[in-house]
């Protein structure tokens, strides 16, 4: 997913204070779930693994824990399914995978996103 990698470190969540992180926080709220669905496109992943990948771009997670309510909602909405798998090290992992519904939601987003991105670019650049 084409996400600009910014050079700053962990961004404190200042959305509630209406500071410089507000735009970022609101954008993240809108697109994070599709990034998660996008990450599951190539196969099942478990929570910590998802967060590691999301953490490679600084804009996508500030507080890692907030991904879990999101994953729970995706589960409830039937966009992802989960299975437990044993691991050679430590406890079993809960793997998340796309359901056909999740694939459809991702396909829809993938279709809309370039138009959306271009439209925003048009308005905010000369």
């Amino acid at each position: 997913m084409a996400v600009p990698v910014t050079m700053h470190c962990m961004v404190p969540d200042v959305a509630s204070k209406g500071g410089s992180g507000k735009a970022e926080s609101q954008l993240r709220k809108g697109v994070l779930e599709y990034c998660v669905l996008g990450l599951l496109r190539t196969g099942a992943r478990y929570g910590v693994e998802l967060l590691e990948v999301l953490g490679t771009v600084n804009v996508m997670t500030t507080s890692q824990g907030t991904i879990y309510p999101l994953l729970a909602r995706l589960r409830r909405d039937g966009l992802v399914d989960t299975t437990w798998q044993e691991s050679p090290s430590g406890p079993p992992r809960r793997y998340y995978m796309l359901t056909p519904q999740g694939e459809a939601a991702l396909a829809e987003f993938t279709e809309i996103w370039p138009h959306f991105r271009d439209a925003v670019d048009r308005f905010i650049t000369d």
């Binding site: 910590v48 967060l51 824990g65 879990y68 691991s87 090290s89 430590g90 406890p91 992992r93 809960r94």
Partner: peptide, 13 residues
């Protein structure tokens, strides 16, 4: 449960 699992997995890794 999700956060507990996260912590357990993160510690194990």
């Amino acid at each position: 449960a999700d956060l507990t699992e996260h912590i357990a997995v993160a510690f194990a890794e």
